[in-house]
Design a protein around this nucleic acid. Structure first.
Lengths: 220, 220
DNA sequence: CGCAAATTTGAACATCGTCAACTCTAGTGG
DNA sequence: CCACTAGAGTTGACGATGTTCAAATTTGCG
């Protein structure tokens, strides 16, 4: 997300007890009534739903300092999504009412929440841009570039992801089959642009990855 | 959008001069520096971009009481999109600075803007849900259902659209070819669920359209 | 070491996009 | 009021891309 600090919101959650989740555990199951607003102190949370034909659909991966579920923060209808710990996760939780109260009474907190909304809009815009691509190669590349922005640790031209992004999570987030993702990543590996280490994708040459995306459309 | 009133924001724009646009005219061209924040008093505005391979991509259709561009409202990077009048359009315009000033100084206005953000998030969520569908038939139906929500005038089980949605706009908003949209609409027409009158789509049986969507996945 | 999860690979198949030719509709001007 | 034109929609054939299914292989971790 952006540079702006979320001091008031972070502060607000500091006083509540910690909740620990193990990798793979559900925090909220689709359809269940959430017990409040959650603040991620540590770890990664996968937000996903099942499509009508039974396949998984990864909407978003949340990281530390982010809050969920969205319907508790904004005035929007509840979404039918699950929240699952992708790694060991530490959360703080507050009742919905007290969060609403915070942003109703504290203008700074409201301003932070407004800012958060902007950040979400940006994530969604990225996601839409991706879904609009039709070919699997640029689509996969685009995803890697966006994931870098959100989860990448840069080291010169090399980027490592701090979140455990498996092929199948990647596929479910861009509406492609796992097999196709594997095939496209394979192409990138052969070109020496990425490698994979213990199921963690490493971008060896970020600049070249970018070029690879742009060049794709030149010959088309 | 939602039930909440946008009194403060509407009020704010009331004092600025009117701008009139004819059907087909550009309000902001992609890449141009917007001259301020626009408020739609009357008409429909198409927000679109050109994809890298040259095809049009309709992001959103804006209607009266809505404001644009997004980067003037939220702290997000500018988008490379065009704003085009789909019908005759009446706008009001204010400088960016004075809008920022409004939401910085007036908590009610900030609250309205926050609410607006929630509404946009919902629109985007709908759009993502659609883009995630893989088959053209349910995808087309889903689009019609969402368009009803935003532009529909209900009359019992019949819905007419107030915005001029051509096949080609429909196609460009769900990432399908115009031809495929035509074919899918044709199926719906044959089933008596929709009709078309002077290039305006009319949903004859909203309930059945809904069922048609859900049933699609039953046999799959 | 052994199991489960993750990935790879190949082949057959289906869906949708593209192209091209055609039809229909609405709006314009003579 | 008719002819013309541009925009919009229809239809059919074809091919490309990605999904699906299945079987084999690799990796990670207890």
């Amino acid at each position: 997300m952006h540079k702006m600090s979320l001091d008031k919101i972070t502060e607000f959650f500091k006083t509540s007890p910690k909740y620990l989740y193990k990798k793979g555990e559900y925090i909220i199951r689709a359809g269940d009534q959430p017990s409040g607003v959650y603040f991620i102190e540590e770890g990664f949370v996968k937000v996903s739903s099942l499509t009508l034909d039974g396949s998984e659909n990864v909407h978003l991966i949340l990281k530390n300092s982010e809050i969920f579920p969205r319907e508790m923060i904004f005035d929007i209808p509840p979404e039918n999504v699950s929240f699952e710990a992708m790694t060991a996760v530490t959360l703080r939780r507050k009742p919905k009412e007290s969060f609403r109260e915070l942003i109703d009474s504290d203008t700074d907190a409201l301003r932070e929440a407004f800012h958060l909304a902007g950040a979400f809009l940006e994530i969604f815009t990225d996601r839409i841009d991706n879904l609009e691509l039709t070919y699997s190669y640029p689509k996969t590349i685009d995803r890697l570039l966006k994931l870098s922005k959100r989860f990448g640790k840069y080291n010169g031209n090399e980027v490592t992801f701090e979140a455990p992004i498996t092929h199948s999570v990647l596929a479910a987030s861009i509406n492609m089959s796992r097999e196709t993702v594997s095939r496209e990543l394979e192409k990138l590996k052969r070109k020496g642009i990425i490698t994979e280490e213990r199921h963690f994708i490493v971008i060896k040459d970020y600049k070249k990855l970018n070029e690879e995306f742009e060049n794709y459309f030149v010959n088309k």
